[in-house]
Amino acid sequence: MEVEDLKEKFLKLNFDEAEFHVDGDDMVGFALACGETAARYTDPADPDFHATPTFPARFHGRRMLPRDIPLGGKIPLDAGKAVMPQKKIRPGTKLVGRSHLHDIYEKTGRSGRMIFLVSRMELFDEAEDLACIVDSRMVVRERPGE
């Protein structure tokens, strides 16, 4: 599993597309459970009511990685998540999430090599405006000698 080979074959190629409906009740439940207090996130009657900035991180496509990526039978572990909001998301919006591998890199430590895969989902609204970018970082660990 060579990183440069993986990059050449898989980087920047869309491997998944999925639709999501933004529900106002879910927006409120999400915000309140996380301790938001501002009316623009918690009160549907607020004139600026919209989803909290990290709300789109809850959307998952049908796949997290390309179907045929060779990981040596290893299951990638969740290593983190980044969210970059681009536009306010209102209730009732239909979003389309398109996913590609945005980056692949490795780190080597005493316990062996770790390969990081950054799966980027770009969420577009009905006007095809980019509403949010969500990066999911996954890590595959190798043991010394593997």
């Binding site: 999400f30 915000a31 459970a33 996380c34 301790g35 938001e36 207090t37 501002a38 996130y41 909290t52 900035p53 990290t54 709300f55 991180a57 809850r58 969740d78 983190g80 998540k81 980044a82 969210v83 970059m84 909001p85 990066d135």
Partner: peptide, 26 residues
């Protein structure tokens, strides 16, 4: 993890109610 991330965002909003989150990485 998504909830932990949103809790951190909520702390930022409590601190700066009119701020916009440009990016959060956890």
């Amino acid at each position: 993890g998504v909830m932990s991330q949103a809790i951190l965002a909520a702390m930022i909003h409590r601190w700066a109610p009119d701020a916009d989150l440009v990016k959060i990485d956890t």
